[in-house]
Write a protein that binds this DNA or RNA. Structure first.
Lengths: 141, 141
DNA sequence: GCACAATCATTAGCAATGCTAATTGGAGGC
DNA sequence: GCCTCCAATTAGCATTGCTAATGATTGTGC
């Protein structure tokens, strides 16, 4: 594959990813949470108990910013903060039942919407996309 | 392809897209613009003259929010606002030379970084990814 | 064991971004 | 001409982002 074609794939992959996530983001309205809060909650639910530093790093914001977002999630009872006994400087942030349910209870709205779109594809296309996703996972790592 | 597999593809596509864009976002630092401003400028450069309403819709923010972002871009000389003569209520927003150069001049940092990653793939993988991107474009439309 | 540097999180204070409601200015109907 | 509708902006507020400074705890050197 030539240099120009590689550039073409890169540019199109970039803009298709942006468009996909923008489309799916419309599903977030029903959650009642802002985008940063929902994204943080999602990470907490999936990645289990995490430290504030890890969470901030993963969400690409600074610790003070994330500390406030966690405040808001705690206020709503979606998340708890527990001091880590091994190192009492740090905290374990984990989802409450309510927090997990808010996410999965909605059937994970975004994924659900995406499944609906995938159903419109031919089976061979879904397989080709699945293969592309495997490669994308390596590229995005 | 079964229902469970389709769900699996959807979930993985979703999170791989998030991870990809987060990775590439690190390239934005060099631009000197915040994420919303850079994203708006990018749309303006690519989509030529646009109205405020169209730009707000595309970026999924409300018109007042976008109006202020455009203010900031105008202040930096990256964009101009021209009253539309056909309908003097509306406005044509377009990039200046400087605005276009800021984007393409950096070689489009994100795409450039992505090309570097694609180079590490085997040729057959790049082709499979290219096929996946074609399908993704339809899914994301 | 004790001062001292390093580390994790939070607080303080500011700029930018997001919203809704209200306003301004112009277009179009009648 | 007047009234309604429409595009954009202004006003005012909450949230999100940052850096700098502070608190609290841990680890280190001696």
């Amino acid at each position: 594959m030539g240099e120009g074609q590689t550039r073409d794939v890169a540019a199109r992959l970039h803009s298709a990813s942006i468009r996909l996530l923008r489309t799916l983001r419309r599903e977030d309205d029903g959650s009642g949470l802002s985008a940063p809060r929902l994204s943080a909650l999602s990470y907490i639910v999936v990645e289990g108990p995490v430290s504030l530093a890890e969470l901030a790093e993963a969400e690409q914001v600074r610790p003070p910013t994330m500390s406030r977002i966690v405040d808001a999630l705690v206020d709503r009872g979606l998340v708890t903060r527990v001091v880590e006994p091994r190192d009492r400087r740090s905290v374990r942030i984990m989802a409450t039942q309510e927090g997990s349910q808010l996410l999965v209870g909605g059937g994970e709205r975004r994924v659900h919407a995406l499944i609906g779109r995938l159903h419109k594809l031919a089976d061979s296309e879904r397989r080709a996309l699945a293969r592309g996703v495997e490669i994308l996972e390596r590229v995005a790592r």
